[in-house]
Design a protein around this nucleic acid. Structure first.
Lengths: 347, 347
DNA sequence: CACCCCGTTGACAACGTTGACTCGCCCGGT
DNA sequence: ACCGGGCGAGTCAACGTTGTCAACGGGGTG
């Protein structure tokens, strides 16, 4: 036998009016009890509390924030490249953890590197009057956010800096990380190091290219144009690009893959050719299973959890009224040595 | 020079009142224009539209849904085990895609297998008056959801069925999938097949055990109690459990790992012992990189995207007023043959 | 005894929007 | 000229809550 019947007339939710009527007090007293105002006598507080329990009353947060002076909705938006990719998913979890402590719900949305989609989602967020926005942007100009910030919705950037707008940002040390990766390969004897990255419209890619170039210069290695491949949007195209490099005359002996999916595509291509124990690889950004592959994959890891945590903390500071000038935080990367980056070049 | 100054007095957001004043019409006409009511003359519609643009007016969705008869907030909640794990992340993306078409935002939360956390998040969702909830539950009794459903917040279960409550559910064919995996191992000559799974409080685990037992019975193989290991919460404990099995007398020659993290732990343990080319493994649930490991990992894959899509579609049907009796949808699994499951037992 | 202050409670308006209703106008039919 | 109908626009109240202010009773003070 079922414990509950699910069918039947939908039941109206109890409101403060109902609670007030049942407990014989004014609506305002119910409000006071709910908001923990201390000037309510124990007896009334008791009656109200019991009525709330009896009616299963749940205050309507939307009505509340509509009326309140601060207008807080206890919702923030988190706009990421794609919630299904590990970087975004981990970030999302870090944000959720901090938001939970603030009694705040998190809306997540995927931008798919589409500026149009970014506009739509930001607009959806402001229609819902979120208290703040964390964004890993796809657009190249963020001036459109200015009215939102002016009207009190703080925005914190993660992973990629704002352009055409002064706003807080929490970023990885992309240039330094890339430099460290390439130096690592050079110091293992490689002189022919290729760079493979995704869309050059993404600012982090530019920083990583800069780090690559800096490291080559530092070691007195030539920066051959054919060794720098960009605009690889997915695993498959990365694999094709690596295959092309390897099949050309004077193939590189080491690869610096500047992004997650590119690293994976590269490994695919190397495995296919049986070169995965011959060609050195260092990837930017760690990924699950990197330590289960053969060889295990050396990466420059971003501290994604720290990035997310700092970003959401900053956001809550802003929501709390902090109006210091915008700040850019850089979170250092870590070189994780696992094997693929320590393969020596052929003699 | 900065294009915008971010500092200064926060600016009040424009309301319908402002738009009405600027365009010289009543507030109600503004409302009509915004809601696309056809009985507005072209001239007024024009004036209002221009005023909206000029003031950058964005309607307050919360106020709107407070007043509207249907009370829709265009928000749904998605409560998953952990948004950072690939299963949840993929599901989340599938839900987002459909929700987007309905102009609805998705707020995600992680339950971490904690029933208490489930109660808190469901409560947070109803405080925000979400239009519906999709949940992969951690609790073992869902009677507490009945008042919510009665008061008009539909709930759809994914991955795990409701208990103590009649509600829609979209689930994988766990028993059949597990059965297929174990039959596959048996048909490659294995007679000593171990089962490794996570917490037995999770209903899917029970179904997968049932499939395991059914397959053994079908092939006339004995179900030795020592071969059935459960309650492995994470990768590390799975690795330890596999190590213990392998070090015992009469070790199994094949493993059926009934969950993602368990599969990964098992592979770790096998690699450590150099047995990854000797002991066969079939995992339940696919995972990224499964086809880059050596050997590539044979799995029974769930169609996560389909599960998510069906669930969110069902939810929107309910939101739309469908009051048919609750339904349970089962989404079939697929055996993905890659190598690890086709290793023959030692002669 | 008049006065004021304090702690507790309630009445009322307001947040930004939409539903129900009303009002005026123009048109067609007689 | 009169009436009915339909259309465009406006008025008012209400959604569920909180801010403001006033009222009330009791106790301490001069």
């Amino acid at each position: 036998m079922e414990r509950w019947s699910t069918s039947g007339e939908p039941v109206r939710r109890a409101t403060m009016r109902d609670v007030a009527a049942l407990s014989g007090v004014s609506i305002k007293t119910v409000s006071r009890v709910i908001n923990g105002v201390s000037t309510v006598s124990d007896e009334l507080r008791d009656r109200v509390t019991r009525a709330i329990a009896q009616l299963d009353f749940q205050p309507n947060l939307a009505a509340s924030s509509l009326r309140r002076t601060d207008g807080a909705t206890r919702q923030i938006a988190l706009l990421l490249e794609d919630v299904a990719n590990p970087f975004s998913a981990t970030l999302s979890r870090a944000v959720e953890n901090v938001a939970r402590d603030h009694g705040t719900l998190v809306f997540t949305g995927s931008l798919d590197e589409d500026p149009q989609r970014e506009l739509e989602l930001v607009r959806a967020a402001t229609l819902h009057r979120v208290d703040g926005i964390i964004i890993a942007p796809a657009a190249t100009d963020h001036g459109y956010l200015h009215p939102e910030i002016r009207s009190g919705t703080p925005v914190v950037f993660v992973d990629r800096p704002p352009r055409g707008l002064a706003a807080d940002a929490v970023l990885a040390t992309n240039t330094e990380g890339a430099r460290e990766a390439v130096l690592h390969l050079a110091d293992h004897g490689h002189t022919e190091i290729a760079f493979l990255g995704d869309a050059r419209t993404i600012s982090t890619v530019g920083e990583r290219v800069a780090g690559y170039r800096a490291a080559l210069a530092e070691r007195g290695l030539p920066a051959r144009p054919g060794r720098l491949v960009q605009d690889l949007p997915d695993t498959a195209s990365a694999a094709r690009a690596v295959a092309a490099l390897l099949d050309a005359p004077h193939p590189p002996t080491a690869l610096f893959t500047a992004q997650n999916l590119v690293t994976i595509g590269a490994i695919h291509a190397l495995q296919e050719r049986g070169l995965h124990e011959r060609v050195a690889v260092v990837g930017f950004d760690d990924f699950p299973m990197a330590d289960l592959l053969v060889p295990r994959v050396t990466v420059v890891a971003q501290d994604v959890i720290r990035i997310g945590t700092l970003a959401v903390r900053r956001l809550f500071e802003r929501i709390g009224g902090d109006d210091a000038p915008p700040r850019e935080d850089r979170v250092p990367t870590t070189l994780v040595v696992r094997g693929s980056g320590e393969i020596a070049p052929p003699p």
